[in-house]
Simulated scan of single mutants.
Amino acid sequence: MKTIVRMMEHLFWANERLFTDLSGREDADTEIVRLLRHIVVAEEVWITRLEGNSSGHLILWGEAELPALREQIQNNERRYRDYIGRLTEEKLDATVRYSSQSGVPFQDTVRDILAHVALHGQYHRGQINRAVTARMGSPAVLDYIVFCRDEKEKG
């Protein structure tokens, strides 16, 4: 349970840090914002499924304005914190049945879904930082170890 919680804490921190970094840049282009939107919507898809609801109405790839993502990032974090706060070690191994965005049925454990959410976001944040480096210079530092150091500094 501790590892999953820690991975999700890193996700919340990295999303906030990336959003703040991109918001401070006037030249964040459509591709970069589109990737960030995808991360945010994918996180919403998974928490919706974990809550036992259909995610079919959510569109994974689309256009967005960066400021509009702020509230969605915060809402996702709140929902995940609420959900994780009710979990036990035993519940992490419960099976969740859901349908993909195209309607294909699947089942996975809560543990695997939460690990996927954390790793999926990290993958796309890496893509965003690569694009930022190519177009705008230095990207946001989102490494897990930097998150750990920040947490230690906060005490």
Rank of each mutant, 00 (worst) to 15 (best):
W61A: 06
F106I: 01
H120R: 00
K154M: 07
P139K: 12
F106D: 00
L35Y: 01
F19Q: 02
R79A: 09
M8R: 12
V40T: 15
K91N: 10
T95E: 11
V146F: 11
H10T: 06
F12K: 06
L11F: 07
D143M: 05
L50M: 03
G56S: 14
R49N: 09
Y98N: 04
L60E: 15
D93E: 15
I128W: 11
T109P: 04
L11E: 10
A115S: 12
H38V: 04
L69S: 03
R130A: 15
F19P: 02
E51D: 13
C148K: 10
I59D: 11
V5Q: 14
D112V: 01
Y83V: 00
Q122C: 00
A68K: 10
T48R: 11
G126T: 01
L114P: 02
H116Y: 13
V41L: 04
F106N: 02
I73A: 07
G52D: 08
A131L: 15
K152N: 02
L60S: 08
V117T: 07
V110W: 10
H124M: 04
P105D: 00
A14R: 08
D112A: 12
T3G: 05
T109N: 06
K2Q: 13
A118L: 08
L58R: 13
A68R: 09
V132R: 09
Y80F: 14
T30N: 05
E71N: 10
D108T: 08
P67E: 03
V96F: 13
V132E: 04
Y123S: 01
L114Q: 11
T30P: 00
M136D: 00
G85F: 13
S102H: 08
A68S: 14
E151C: 10
R149W: 11
V117I: 13
H120K: 01
D108S: 14
V117K: 12
I145W: 09
L35A: 04
W46F: 15
R70D: 03
H116G: 02
T133F: 14
